[in-house]
């Protein structure tokens, strides 16, 4: 967190310095972000994968702070690295299955997909160079603060805020609907000759 604040301080518009320190910080955090991301997708140990992702999110929070998005940076740490990743950890613990080592299937498909992604990047990357012909504007002093963003959230984005509440409600229903078992269903399980249900306790734990 100390590091985060230092980073924020250094790129604060009022104290822009010509030194290379912010750039070095940027490289460090970028390395954390990309390194964490790459580790995430190549880990076989699930808990380690989740932890790598947490590292990525911390790095991203620092990067956000460099962009003067202090509120979002804090949110990133709280919601993402905190709440969402806890959810992931939880599910990983419940399922508790590491990927069994076996050869990859559909190699050709995966290669075609990889080529597509590389091609996408080749189309996109050069364009980002000239993406900002107008240059960077100087933000106001309270740019990115809680007060500033909160003001927008509860005025211009009030509708969006309410819409998100419906979204979260749907997420809650999803968790309830999918994880809950009706007693009635358990009784009729044999009758329907379906796959057998998980033991009650496991399901209770999963939500």
């Amino acid at each position: 967190m100390m590091l985060l604040e230092a980073a924020a301080h250094m790129v604060d518009p009022s104290t822009i310095s010509t030194s290379s320190a912010p750039l070095i910080l940027f490289w460090i955090f970028s390395a954390v972000v990309l390194g964490g991301a790459i580790l995430t997708i190549f880990q076989t140990n699930m808990v380690a994968a989740v932890m790598s992702l947490v590292a990525t999110f911390f790095g991203l929070a620092a990067i956000y702070a460099m962009l003067s998005a202090h509120f979002i940076a804090a949110l990133q740490v709280l919601v993402y690295a905190g709440a969402i990743m806890v959810l992931f950890i939880f599910v990983v613990m419940v399922l508790n299955k590491d990927e069994a080592p076996r050869p990859m299937r559909g190699l050709i498909t995966k290669m075609i997909g990889a080529i597509s992604i590389v091609s996408l990047m080749f189309t996109l990357m050069p364009l980002l160079d000239n993406a900002v012909p107008g240059g960077v504007e100087t933000p106001s002093a309270d740019f990115g603060t809680v007060a500033n963003v909160g003001d927008i959230l509860f005025n211009d984005y009030l509708f969006a805020f309410e819409a998100v509440s419906i979204l979260l409600l749907i997420a809650v229903i999803a968790a309830v609907v999918v994880a809950r078992t009706h007693k009635q269903e358990v009784v009729e399980e044999g009758h329907l000759a379906e796959h057998e249900a998980m033991p009650e306790a496991t399901i209770e734990a999963s939500h």
Binding site: A163, L167, I170, V177, V178, E185, L192, E194
Partner: peptide, 21 residues
Amino acid sequence: LGLEIMSLAVYVLTGSWRRSP
């Protein structure tokens, strides 16, 4: 947001027949 509200609800509905694999 509209797209996500619609989509998330429909994903859940798609999977709502819990015992059908």
